[in-house]
């Protein structure tokens, strides 16, 4: 792993998108940034632009309208990228599973790497998930170094398969 990657692993930039959650997971995600939990201890910075982000935090289940937006944000992020599904809704749509407008978890729109349960998950769990996401990111970087061509093929494969699901 080169020096830049080594530094990047110490500072993942995260982007948060609320697909259609009840706000519980969102405010717990924001609470991670604040003094008591302070995710900047691990170098994680919350940013607004998908082009800068290494990691996408998705809260809430995916509905017909937000699916397109989520997909759009995911496509704008640069490779390699990691998606973390926060809360039971983003994992399997939770209490809203009967509703007509709910498609399911975040994996209905984008490939998800880390799932955490809880309604809402505690900030400690969210921090843990971000750390797990960094590990995934390291693995992806390593793959990229070893098989630069093969990896990008794989990427387009997963994109196609999730597009079929929708």
């Amino acid at each position: 792993m080169n020096l830049v990657r080594l530094a990047q692993a110490k500072s993942p930039w995260v982007l948060h998108y609320d697909a259609s959650s009840c706000n519980g997971c969102d405010i717990e995600t924001v609470a991670c940034l604040t003094p008591l939990y302070d995710i900047e201890r691990f170098g994680a910075v919350s940013i607004g632009s998908p082009k800068h982000a290494d990691m996408l935090l998705v809260t809430g289940n995916v509905n017909h309208k937000s699916k397109r937006v989520l997909r759009n944000i995911y496509d704008q992020m640069t490779e390699p990228k990691v998606v973390v599904a926060i809360g039971i809704c983003a994992t399997s749509s939770g209490v809203f599973h009967q509703s007509y407008n709910v498609l399911g978890g975040a994996d209905q729109a984008v490939p998800v790497d880390v799932y955490i349960s809880g309604c809402p998950p505690r900030p400690e769990a969210i921090i843990d998930a971000i750390i797990m996401g960094v590990e995934k990111l390291k693995k992806k970087w390593k793959e990229e170094e070893e098989h630069p061509v093969k990896r990008s093929n794989q990427g387009s494969d997963t994109e196609r398969s999730t597009a079929d699901v929708g």
């Binding site: 509905n63 017909h64 309208k65 397109r68 007509y100 407008n101």
Partner: peptide, 11 residues
């Protein structure tokens, strides 16, 4: 307004 084009109608 709330529903998109591919959602079920008059739910």
């Amino acid at each position: 307004m709330l529903l998109s084009r591919d959602a079920p109608r008059t739910p």
